[in-house]
Design a protein around this nucleic acid. Structure first.
Lengths: 220, 220
DNA sequence: AAGCCTCCTGAACGACCATTTATATTGGCC
DNA sequence: GGCCAATATAAATGGTCGTTCAGGAGGCTT
């Protein structure tokens, strides 16, 4: 119940008992907004809807967020930041072999888009409602992720372990990276845990497909 | 200037001079609505916006459409129907060879999504705003297109000309078809005529990638 | 010329929107 | 106990929304 105001240097985090029910209101608002944006879409969800879902009145939103727009940005940015971090980590842990790097990237990316498909869906579907200032850093993060893939492909081609398709004799690694990412991103639009494949199997399938596309034989 | 009211059996269509300026208002409304939905999104485009863009007042919409919702459905359904028709035609004209069928399908599908990327973008992005009754036939058409791909893959596997990736020893052709379609559909999100590749080159690249994914060597 | 049908306008309807404001309530800290 | 900051509320602000409807204008048919 305390945890936020007292500043004695020794009770920073109780750590053992993570009492959880009375989530700080800003968390409750985030969660309620996320659920409703996912279900009905940003422009038709009203501030009243969100605040009613956490038992508050509309005006209270503005004690925690400057606007409805900032609230959406907050939700999308945290998802996007976490995704970028996981992708970097996966590639860094692959030991420098382009095949292993691509496989690790696709695996993490697909598993995440299966497991957190609602988060991914909101981030991809609602981004267009952000005003241009706030959309910029989201797009930066997406470009960064695309460039991770492009870099993997470049290394693979340089070392001769990838042989991706050419158009008129030349590679267009950016287009190929976009194709791979589109494919992997949009599993969040149709994958469901009730389907034929588990998340693990999805990751394996998409890894195989990616390796085929870039012209590397599947590993092992 | 006439063309719609007189019903003498012999002036059905003047045919030679296709005088074009005063488009029938229903066409003008469709066009204006499409342009604005594409640019700003269905829920924030008002009936007033649409009608002002064709020089009419808001009330006149309801002489031609039952509601704003029906107008959106009309726009999406015509695009979707044309897409389905073109896909069927492309596959039928490929002569029964699964490789040629897949190549023809991807070529037509990608070229269309490059050339008419705005139409595709609207159809994919705004479909969620339709009420459930009207969304049903759009989804039916999408399933039909997916099933075209699944059927091609099945034939290719039966005849031994495709060897798509397996998970735990078994094929999941539906998942692979979805992956291929996601990849091809979403060129409409980033392709632009100012980019590095022409529509032709995009079609070629995506055909190559699809054939690699299903385990067939690129043709000639 | 009269009637009819199609399509338009302009105003009105009732509802709902994001945000701001003035005011009240709370709980920790001196 | 009194103060202060944080956070809540209810009401108001100034719009905008999709849709309906009474009335009028123009042309086609008879």
């Amino acid at each position: 119940m305390s945890k936020r105001k007292t500043m004695h240097a020794d009770d920073e985090v109780p750590a053992a008992v993570a009492e959880r029910e009375p989530r700080p209101p800003v968390e409750a608002i985030r969660a309620a907004a996320f659920a409703q944006f996912a279900e009905r879409g940003y422009p038709v969800v009203t501030v009243r809807d969100i605040m009613k879902a956490c038992g508050l009145t509309q005006g209270a939103l503005y004690n925690h967020f400057k606007s409805k727009d900032e609230l959406l940005h907050d939700i999308i940015a945290s998802t996007q930041g976490e995704l970028e971090r996981q992708c970097q980590q996966a590639v860094a842990g692959a030991g420098g072999d382009p095949r292993a790097e691509l496989a690790a990237f696709v695996r993490v990316y697909v598993m995440r888009h299966c497991r957190l498909r609602i988060e991914a869906l909101v981030a991809n579907r609602e981004i267009g409602w952000l005003d241009s200032a706030r959309v910029a850093d989201i797009r930066r993060s997406r470009r960064a992720i695309r460039d991770i893939v492009v870099t993997i492909l470049e290394h693979g081609v340089e070392r001769g372990v990838f042989d991706p398709p050419r158009v008129d004799g030349k590679h267009d690694l950016k287009a190929i990276a976009m194709a791979l990412l589109d494919q992997c991103t949009h599993v969040s639009m149709w994958y469901g845990p009730g389907g034929d494949l588990t998340e693990e199997q999805m990751a394996k399938l998409y890894t195989d497909m990616a390796l085929r596309v870039v012209g590397a034989a599947p590993q092992a």
